[in-house]
Design a protein around this nucleic acid. Structure first.
Lengths: 261, 261
DNA sequence: CGAAACAGCGTAGGACATACACTGAAAGTG
DNA sequence: CACTTTCAGTGTATGTCCTACGCTGTTTCG
C-alpha cells in the first residue's frame, strides 16, 4: 500500500507492511492468523498460556513455523496488544467533550476487560498500531471543539490514559485474586486487618477500619473468572467513576481558564 | 507477637508470623534474607533475572533450600512487593491535605522508580503487607482533617492509586523502550506517524501531529536505563503533575460540597 | 540415649524460547 | 522442459525455568 520507505520494523509489522517476496512456497500462515490464534488463546486461558508451541499447534503447524512470520515472541505480543483493541465506533459520539471522554474511558475499560491479559503486555514504545492510534484519535476528537492548544489536548488524554489503565489493572488483578482465593477478601480480610493494624502505628487506617468500610463491600463483583467478563464491576466502577469525575472536573477548570485568558 | 490465630497464610508470611518449630537443624536462611537478595537482584537486573536458582546461588545455597521458607515463587514475589516499599517518612507532612497528597504521590512514584520491577508483580489481593498499609495510612492521614466520611477518604485514595501506578507503569515502560531502541521515538516516530496517519481516518490525531507536538519532546528523560534511576523524568512528570492537579481539584470540589451540605 | 522434627540438597520431569541446519515447494530463467 | 533461486515449514538440540519427591544430616525434646 503506502511505500514502506524507512519505517521501523515494528511499525511496519503492525501496519501489515512486511515486504515478502513472491517466489517460493506459498505461505499457509499469515501474521493475522497467528495473531488471532494467540488472542483467542489468551482470551480463553491467559497470557501465560500463549506459548509459541501452543499457538502453533492451535493452527496445526509446528512451533518453528511461526518464526517465519514473527521475529520473536515479543513481536507477537506487540501484535496482540494492537489486535486486542477492537475498532472504535466511528460515528461521532454525542454530547460535549466531557461526556464523550467519559464514554471513551468506559469503552476502553470494558475493552480491556474483555481481554484481561492486555494489562500484562509491556508497552515498549509510544502508540504506533493502527487501532491504538484510532482510539487516541477518538479521544482527541472529543476535545476538538475546546479552546485548548493541540499540545494541551494531548496532555489531557495522556493524563487520562494512566487513570484508565491503572484502574483496569487494579480491578482485574483484584478480580483474579478474588477468584483464586475468596477467603482473603471481605470478612476475613477485615478481621485480619483489625488484628494486625496497630492503632498507634496506623491511626488513620484504623479509623477507617473501625468505621467498618472494609467489612461489607468486599471485592469487585466477579462472575467467576471465566472467559467473557461482562459482569458487574460495581464497587470498583463506582470508584473509577469518582476518580474520573474528579479528573475531568479539574480539566474543565483548566479549559475554562484557557478560554477566558 | 500477636497471636497467629486464623490469619491467612499469605498475610502471616508478610507480617513475619510464620510459626516455625524450635526442633531440628538451625535455619541458615531467613525469609528476610531471601527477600532482600531477590530485591537486590531485581534492582540490579530485572524481575526476569529473579529465578529461584539465581536467588539461591546469590545466597550461597542450593535452589531447593528456598522452598523451606517460601511455598512458591509467587510467595516470594508477594514478599518482594512489600519489601520494595520503603518505610514512609513518619513525621507528619506539612501543609493542607492537597499538598500532602501531592507529596505522597510523588514519594510513591519515585519509590516505584527506584524499583522498576515493582510494576511487573501482579497484585493478587487487597493491601495486606505492613509497608503497604503504612503508605495507605499516610495517605489517609492527609485527609484526616477534612469533612469527608471515612469511606469517602478511602475512595479518594483508591482513586489516586491507579493514577500513580498507571503513571509509573507508563513512564517506566516507555523509558525501557527508549533505552532499548531510541530510534522509535522522537524524530523517527514523528516521521512514521506522519506517513501512516491518514488525515481522513484520523482527523484529530493528524491535527496534533501537524502541530509538531511529537517532534521535539520525545520520550521521558532517561539516564541510560541503568540500575539507579533518579534522572529527570521531566516530560512525563509534567504530564503527571497536570493529571494529579486536575484530579485533586475535582476532589477539592467534592470536599467543599461535603463541608457545605 | 533414642526418636521426632526439621533444614538443606540432588535428581528428575515437564515446560519454555529459540538457534541452526534441513527438506521440499513454488516461481522465475534459459 | 530443465535448472536455479528463494522461501515456508520441520526436527533437533541447548539452555533456561519451576517444583515434586526422596534423601541426608543436624538439632532438640522426652
Amino acid at each position: 500500500m503506502t511505500a514502506e520507505g524507512e519505517l521501523p520494523e515494528d511499525v511496519a509489522l503492525l501496519w501489515g507492511l512486511r515486504s515478502g517476496g513472491r517466489r517460493g512456497r506459498k505461505p499457509a500462515l499469515t501474521v493475522e492468523d497467528i495473531t488471532r490464534a494467540a488472542v483467542r488463546l489468551a482470551d480463553a486461558e491467559s497470557l501465560a498460556a500463549v506459548s509459541m508451541a501452543r499457538v502453533a499447534s492451535e493452527l496445526g503447524n509446528s512451533t518453528m513455523a511461526l518464526y517465519r512470520h514473527v521475529r520473536s515472541k515479543d513481536e507477537l505480543l506487540l501484535l496482540m496488544s494492537d489486535a486486542a483493541l477492537e475498532e472504535p465506533p466511528t460515528e461521532s459520539a454525542p454530547g460535549e467533550w466531557r461526556e464523550q471522554l467519559i464514554r471513551w474511558a468506559h469503552d476502553v475499560l470494558t475493552m480491556i476487560r474483555r481481554h484481561p491479559w492486555y494489562r500484562d503486555i509491556p508497552i515498549s514504545g509510544p502508540p504506533a498500531g493502527p487501532r491504538n492510534l484510532a482510539w487516541l484519535d477518538r479521544a482527541l476528537a472529543a476535545l476538538a471543539e475546546t479552546a485548548l492548544a493541540e499540545e494541551e489536548k494531548l496532555a489531557v488524554v495522556m493524563g487520562l490514559l494512566p487513570l484508565v489503565h491503572g484502574q483496569a489493572r487494579l480491578s482485574l488483578d483484584l478480580s483474579a485474586g478474588y477468584a483464586a482465593d475468596p477467603e482473603s477478601f471481605g470478612e476475613g480480610y477485615a478481621r485480619s486487618l483489625a488484628r494486625l493494624v496497630d492503632p498507634l502505628r496506623f491511626p488513620a487506617l484504623s479509623r477507617v477500619i473501625a468505621a467498618g468500610v472494609f467489612g461489607s463491600g468486599g471485592p469487585p463483583g466477579v462472575d467467576g473468572g471465566g472467559t467473557d467478563r461482562t459482569g458487574p464491576f460495581d464497587e470498583l466502577d463506582a470508584e473509577f467513576q469518582f476518580a474520573l469525575t474528579c479528573y475531568l472536573e479539574g480539566v474543565a477548570g483548566f479549559i475554562a481558564r484557557r478560554a477566558a485568558g
